[in-house]
Design a protein around this nucleic acid. Sequence first.
DNA 1: ACGCTGACTATTA
DNA 2: CTAATAGCCAGCG
Length: 119
Amino acid sequence: MKKTALNDESFFAMVYEVVKRIPHGRVTSYGAIAAYLGTRGSARMVGWAMNASHNSLDSIPAHRVVNRKGLLTGKHHFGSPDLMQQLLKSEGISIIDDHIQNFEKVFWDPAKELGGHDL
DNA sequence: ACGCTGACTATTA
DNA sequence: CTAATAGCCAGCG
């Protein structure tokens, strides 16, 4: 029986699936996704997958993925350094000086939210 | 093949 | 809080 929605899909595909499952007005971290995929030490690979997200046919809300400090480290990859902040702001997330306010409130952990859905 | 880089994280001081 | 170090793994010259 299937234990998880995460199976023999490529690492990139799994990251995309998790990112697309991020609720509106929520954010998560690279490490959280990596940990959910079982590659906790490879948080960089999650960021790398995000970098390749433009290659995916689906729209990946990469602006909802930040580092564990709640800092918009990837904002420079959106084409405009302010785009990521504006997108998060539009979802009800307050951002000051590139760092998310109430980060613990808007943080969405896949291992916690999805870790009981089908896992 | 080798070394460097990178949208990261944890540990130690 | 900052700074330094180690681990991680794919892509590029």
